[in-house]
């Protein structure tokens, strides 16, 4: 069975390129991503300019370090708050298919059910890749304007972690959209769950088991553990192993790929 992913991506592109909400949310994401890093970078500069060593240390702890090699981790961590935007894009794009009943028409016109889901998954991975490239570019710009000419790719793994984290957020949103089928409901659940309940459940499980298990189990929190808050803050709330978090995140990604295909292949549309 040939899925022909480039062909599927071309069809997805035809669907989104004329969709205004897609462009508005993408522009908002890019501007917000640059903006949030600029705010932190600017405040950090104020702490540095104060000349007070204690203030500089506090600034680094709270606002991160925008010099190489730490800039990759700092920008990834700051920007990860904005991963709701690409999630919203995927939710709107997916629920549109149900609202317009084009999910049925696409199958009637000759897409395989699996192809329909794989097209969305491939689009989601591509969107995560675009977000990651933007983060990489932003990191390089802030790194170059923050340092004293020193350049290093030492912390580049955090860009890779950001890619996995983006995939987890976007595919979680896609799975939710496929289950809920209504845009407003899916956006509401995604936002509130991601912001509050995922972490709340992680804390409860961890407290209940007196381990860091909750941070590994919850679908979004485990991806957040790839780009955890700065080390000093992390010491207070407990430390997790990034590589274990990476493995579990990839397992969740496998679930987000497998489950929607299976569900869509078996149900009445």
């Amino acid at each position: 069975m040939n899925l022909n992913i480039p062909h599927l991506l071309r069809i997805e592109w035809m669907k989104v390129k004329n969709y205004k909400a897609f462009w508005i949310l993408m522009i908002l994401f890019v501007v917000s991503m640059i903006g949030i890093n600029y705010i932190y970078w600017y405040v950090k500069q104020q702490f540095v300019a104060s000349g007070d060593i204690a203030a500089q240390a506090a600034g680094s702890m709270i606002f991160g370090d925008f010099r190489f090699p730490a800039v990759f981790k700092t920008v990834s961590q700051m920007s990860s708050w904005l991963l709701y935007f690409p999630g919203f894009i995927v939710i709107f794009h997916t629920t549109n298919e149900f609202t317009f009943r084009t999910h049925r028409q696409n199958i009637i016109d000759g897409l395989m059910r699996k192809q329909f889901v794989v097209a969305k998954l491939a689009g989601a991975f591509l969107l995560a890749l675009v977000c990651t490239l933007l983060i990489l570019l932003t990191s390089l710009v802030f790194g170059l304007i923050s340092g004293d000419g020193y350049f290093s790719l030492e912390g580049l793994q955090y860009i890779g972690f950001f890619f996995v984290q983006s995939c987890v957020y976007i595919l979680f949103a896609f799975t939710l959209a496929l289950l809920v089928r209504r845009a407003a409901l899916a956006v509401g659940i995604f936002f509130i769950y991601g912001l509050i309940f995922d972490y709340l459940l992680a804390v409860w499980i961890s407290r209940g088991t007196e381990t860091t298990l909750g941070y590994y189990l919850m679908p979004l929190q485990v991806a957040d553990e790839l780009n955890p808050p700065l080390a000093e803050l992390k010491k207070v709330i407990g430390s997790t192993n990034q590589w274990i978090a990476l493995g579990i995140s990839i397992a969740w990604l496998a679930f987000y790929c497998f489950f929607p295909i299976r569900k869509f292949e078996r149900e009445d549309l």
């Binding site: 071309r10 004329n18 317009f100």
Partner: peptide, 25 residues
Amino acid sequence: TLLETPNFYHYMNAVQNLQIAAAIK
């Protein structure tokens, strides 16, 4: 096939919708 109701992307015009249908077909 025309089944039940016409199902198209509301924000697109006729040509854009037919281009998608043609690509799928």
